[in-house]
Design a protein around this nucleic acid. Structure first.
Length: 668
DNA sequence: AGCACGCCGACT
DNA sequence: GTCGGCGTGCTC
């Protein structure tokens, strides 16, 4: 009889207690097919209860800590090693950093199996030799700087070139996309795959077009959440081959299998879409940093603005900042909110300089107008008493989608027919504050008669526009790419965007504006309306990194993320107190507790990065774990008051829920 | 999560 | 003396 074959299995269970490897005996009948990375079915506790899991490793000796009798692996779900070893290691590391479960990461990393797709893939011939890829130079940057970083596993923070470029007849993309594409060709030419992570499908379309221009289609894999399940699974299977590929997608793409990984590039890491909404909420940037260290590939953070997180990495010397040479500085004109001479322009809340600039630009091509909100009248109030109008069903705010639409609830969608004011019984509504994209479009249409008006927002996505004159009204982040670039850009709702209450407002605004400005043609004017101060200065001088540096300095002074890491503890007073006294690190400071409900409190723990490992793995006698949630928390509307951080009301539920998930097992 | 094991009140 | 309360703990 040969040595026993033992499979170490990560069980697919949401229970944090099961977040470790279990040993199972491999019966003879499965011995030939079993291998690390495949999905298996294993018994758990009382016979009859069967769980799915992944084989992490095969061994001939049981884990020393367990002396009981091993159960047999029940069966093999699929012989395809969908959880690549490097991804299993990454999942473990990412989970440890965020005090979460590895299986939660694996669920994001491995798409659901599609038997038909798998069958076709297994039957298909493999080992075909793909065409040779030429390594392209990184044009517009200091010669050799990015190239040598890619060759030498370097880490860079790259300021993107704020221009658009044509990658195929009539196909225009942001210049950043060709930078990423060129970087990918270098990794692939050197024999490594490139993982390219973008925040949303808009960016992905641009990147896909840029890649298609420089790589054969067999070298490009799309792996994103928008795909159908079969497409996602097919894409994952393609990544399992030996040939280096460019793998593009949104945040989950950082977990795609890539045995020989040459490069990870993250576009616009400040975009909140890079934050994974599923526990343990690992950000693309953090997963990328872990994977870079683990697999020794190159790592590029590319963006028009710099996140405070990446700025921190630059300051501690972990990543190196690279700027375009020669410098490309867009022409930005800050304009105070002065009354325009033209009545119609004034109605459209456009200052006269911006109005003149837009009128002139409209003679030669498209003009972009960035607004804060979609719809027509985003806020409505009672004509008689001025109270904001609330839904009669759910108390949600009422808004109007178009000039002719019946006002409806922004939360539950109920139409506000027969509406009456809860305060004064009035029945007439009026708009409050500036209008949304549709209203702006209407106003601007009047101010510029005869000009084509295009509205682009979440509901009416427009990816690109041609080079003929048009007013393109877009909500922030939804701006289409214009052929040849916009001849002028109007950043209209700056004031409103800056007024948002969040720890990251300034950073976010600068990012939204910079991304819009980067869509302009070379030399075209961009008008920032109604915003002054340091943030306007940072945009006009195009010195986003400097702004990030001063933001980070402020956060350091206040001990806010990302200067420090933040965890929350929510639970019964006793459980939280116990967990706090059990903190393994004296450098951690504790804010609160604040009451979050009957008998429950929330405490925010701030600690230095160096303490992260100890904090994340700390367990009190009650089993409490701290979770880093700086991102998740956001700490909206930060205020230090009586030495406490108050969290905006709308986020309290999130915080409590997250804390309770952590302490759910602590309470037992 | 489930489902066992485990140590104190009212019953044939 | 036993049947059973669900508190505590484990899952290879």
């Amino acid at each position: 009889m040969a040595a026993p074959l033992i499979a170490r299995v990560l069980v697919d269970s949401p229970l944090p207690q099961l977040d470790r490897l279990f040993d199972y005996n491999v019966p003879e009948s499965l011995a030939t097919d079993i291998q690390p990375g495949i999905r298996v079915r294993v018994p758990l506790r009382s016979a009859g209860r069967i769980a799915d899991g992944y084989v992490i490793e095969l061994t001939d000796h049981a884990d020393g800590g367990y002396t009981g009798v091993l159960s047999d692996v029940e069966g093999i779900v699929s012989t395809v090693p969908v959880l690549a070893p490097e991804v299993a290691i990454l999942a473990r590391k990412a989970a440890d950093r965020a005090a979460g479960s590895a299986i939660d990461i694996v669920r994001v990393a491995v798409p659901t199996r599609q038997a038909r797709v798998e069958k076709a893939w297994l039957a298909a011939e493999r080992g075909e030799v793909l065409p040779v890829v030429t390594a392209l130079p990184l044009e517009g940057y200091p010669a050799g700087e990015i190239e040598s970083a890619i060759a030498g596993m370097g880490r860079l923070a790259i300021d993107a070139i704020p221009l658009v470029t044509e990658v195929a007849a009539g196909v225009w993309v942001g210049r950043w996309a060709t930078t990423l594409a060129a970087a990918a060709t270098r990794a692939i030419a050197a024999g490594g795959s490139a993982i390219l992570a973008v925040p949303d499908y808009r960016d992905q379309e641009q990147l896909a077009a840029a890649l298609a221009a420089v790589l054969p289609p067999e070298r490009i894999v799309r792996l994103d959440a928008k795909q159908s399940k079969p497409d996602r699974y097919r894409a994952l299977l393609r990544c399992l081959g030996d040939e280096p590929l460019a793998i593009i997608g949104n945040r989950s793409v950082v977990y795609s299998p890539a045995k020989s990984l040459g490069l990870i590039a993250v576009w616009d890491d400040g975009d909140p879409l890079h934050t994974e909404p599923l526990a343990p909420y690992v950000h693309t940037r953090d997963a990328a940093l872990l994977r870079q260290e683990q697999q020794g590939c190159a790592l590029l953070f590319v963006g028009h603005s710099r996140s405070t997180e990446v700025e921190r990495l630059v300051e501690i010397g972990w990543v190196t900042s690279v700027s375009p040479t020669p410098a490309v500085r867009p022409k930005i004109i800050p304009t105070a909110q002065q009354a325009a001479t033209d009545r119609l322009a004034a109605q459209a809340r456009i200052p006269s300089t911006a109005w003149r600039g837009a009128r002139e630009a409209l003679e030669t091509g498209p003009v972009l107008v960035q607004v804060a909100r979609p719809g027509y009248a985003p806020r409505l109030a009672c004509v008689d008493c001025g109270q904001s109008a609330r839904c009669l069903r759910c108390e949600g705010p009422l808004a109007q989608k178009s000039a002719t639409a019946i006002p409806a609830c922004a939360w539950c969608g109920a139409l506000a027919t027969n509406w009456h004011c809860a305060n004064c019984e009035g029945t007439k509504l009026r708009q409050v504050g500036a209008g949304g994209a549709s209203r702006t479009a209407e106003d601007l249409g009047r101010a510029f008669p005869g000009v084509r008006v295009i509205v682009a927002d979440g509901e009416r996505p427009v990816l690109s526009v041609d080079s003929s004159p048009a007013l393109v009204i877009a909500t922030r982040g939804a701006e289409p790419v214009a052929a040849g670039g916009y001849r002028a850009v109007l950043l209209l709702d700056g004031e409103r965007m800056v007024a948002r209450e969040s720890l990251r407002v300034a950073e976010d605004c600068l990012r939204w504006w910079s991304n819009a400005v980067a869509l302009s043609a070379r030399g075209a004017p961009s008008y920032l309306v109604g915003v002054g101060g340091a943030i306007a200065g940072a945009l006009t001088t195009w010195r986003q990194a400097d702004f990030a540096r001063s933001e980070l300095a402020d956060r350091r002074r206040l001990r806010f993320p990302p200067a420090v890491r933040v965890a929350t503890l929510t639970g019964t007073i006793a459980a939280v107190a116990k967990a706090v006294t059990d903190l393994p690190v004296p450098s951690a400071d504790v804010l609160g507790p604040v009451e979050t409900g009957p008998g429950t409190v929330r405490t925010i723990v701030r600690f230095d990065y160096s303490a992260g490992t100890e904090i994340a793995s700390s367990r009190g006698a009650d089993g409490a774990r701290l979770v880093e949630q700086a991102e998740r928390l956001g700490i909206d509307r930060p205020q230090i008051r009586d030495d406490r951080i108050e969290v905006a009301e709308e986020r309290v539920d999130d915080v409590v829920a997250a804390g309770e998930r952590q302490l759910g097992h602590a309470a037992r």
